[in-house]
Design a protein around this nucleic acid. Structure first.
Lengths: 192, 192
DNA sequence: GTCTATAATTCGATAGAC
DNA sequence: GTCTATCGAATTATAGAC
């Protein structure tokens, strides 16, 4: 924390507070209070409360897309691609738990036209996952489930992570989580 | 819609609007506007905006607990219990999609002491699911995964439903969703 | 039950001195 | 960059006439 610039310190503190209270419920006065400064000073770091949310959300969204594009372009099997997608989500949860929680919980508070842009990015991401699963089904590696349902169900298996692991230190061992979720997704709960 | 009392009509309209905009972002003026009435009239139906949220959330929470208790007490296998839990979630999604979405997205906006009560109910529910999975593991029916991770991952597989199916008519066939999710949860994605 | 009017508070954001 | 002070708008909620 010591080598942070003031702006970085502000961004980190705000991110945590917004996660605890929610974006709408967190006021500029709340931010100032938790930083022990005056309301007016907040505007040294940001243009508006809205732009703060945009910075967080598009930042973490870009990280997901960057990782996903690397996975999609690599010459590995569909099964390996899906494993890497799981790993990416867990990595990002470890490195940026608050941003990840914000990504899931607060994107609805974006305003147009940023909201439409975000939703488009979100859909693009889901479609990339869908493509991986579709490939796997066509190759006979994955079970032939309904593609939409399988994709959303798969993505959901990764969506509790931020909720139960927000904050430092991460409560569960990332490698163990990865192993367990991979097993759940690939083989299911039942033995037979 | 025609046989609704005015209060029922108000509750249904408000529920939909709160889901679209978010609880904090939905103002009493928004509610009045969508009902073509004045702000003051809203308070014929409710005591406060906060109590409105409480009514919705504890109502749907109770329905989940009621269904869950019936399942837990029944003399069926762990596998059948888990199947019924899946079915219950899908049933409630079909019957009360907006309440279900609210349950996931807006419970953070409760205030103390209601917030603590809600969180306790939420934890109790998760623990009931956990017990079912634990039973199945002990009986050798379910794979021996980490109990916490398995429970949260399982519950998450049911958590995209409200997101992709909010509103009427339900876009996907409930029986098909049930079949597909059950297969995903029990057998996983991979063929082998 | 419905309306007009308004109270009381809180919000995001800014002006201007230092 | 930091402060004091404040603006203008929006918010929940109520009073009181009809």
């Amino acid at each position: 924390m010591s080598k942070m610039t003031k702006k970085e310190r502000f961004l980190a503190t705000s991110l945590k507070l917004i996660n605890e209270k929610g974006f709408k419920a967190t006021t500029i006065r709340d931010l100032a209070s938790s930083l022990n400064c005056e309301v007016a000073n907040i505007y040294n770091y940001i243009d508006s409360k809205q732009s703060l949310l945009e910075t967080y959300l598009f930042g973490i969204s870009n990280e997901f897309h960057f990782a996903m594009d690397t996975i999609i372009d690599s010459k590995i099997s569909s099964e390996e691609k899906l494993k890497l997608i799981i790993r990416t989500h867990i990595d990002l949860m470890v490195k940026k738990p608050y941003e990840l929680a914000l990504l899931v919980n607060e994107w609805r508070n974006l305003k147009e036209p940023k909201l439409s842009t975000f939703i488009a990015e979100k859909n693009t991401y889901e479609n990339k996952v869908k493509t991986v699963i579709k490939e796997g089904m066509e190759q006979g590696v994955f079970r032939s489930l309904d593609l939409e349902i399988a994709t959303f169900t798969f993505l959901s298996t990764l969506r509790w992570l931020h909720d139960k692991n927000t904050g430092y230190p991460i409560k569960m061992d990332p490698l163990e989580i990865e192993k367990q979720i991979t097993q759940f997704v690939f083989s299911g709960l039942c033995i037979d």
